[in-house]
Amino acid sequence: MKKGDFLLIALALLLALSPLLLRPGREAEGAAARAVVRKDGAVVAVLPLNEEAELPLNENGYNLLRVSGGAVCMAEADCPDGTCLRRGAVRRPGESIVCLPNRVTVVLEGSGGGVDAVTQ
C-alpha cells in the first residue's frame, strides 16, 4: 500500500457515498403511497399500496409481485440469481426491488408528485 492508494480509496468512498445526497429528503420518510412497476424500461403498472394485489409479469421471464399490508415484495421469480426475492418487502418512498435478469424494477413513491417525483 502506498500514499496514492489511500487517496484513491478515499475518493472511491466519496464516490460510493454520493448517491446518498440524491436520496429523497426527510419529508419523504414514512409510508409510500404507490409502487411504479417497469418492465424493459416502460411503466407497466402503478399499484396503490393501500390495496392488496398480485401482479404477474410473464413476458421475457416470470415475476409475481405482491402488494400486502402497505408493502411490496417479489413473491415469485424465475430469474437465475433470485436477488429480487432476497430483497424482501419494501415500504418506504425511494426504496426499490430490482430483477435485472428479467428487467423488472419496482420503485416506491410517496403521496406527492407524479411518476418522477422521487428522482428530483
Partner: peptide
C-alpha cells in the same frame, strides 16, 4: 430499465 432510482 428506465429507472434512475437504481443509482442508489
Amino acid at each position: 430499465t428506465g429507472t434512475p432510482e437504481l443509482f442508489y
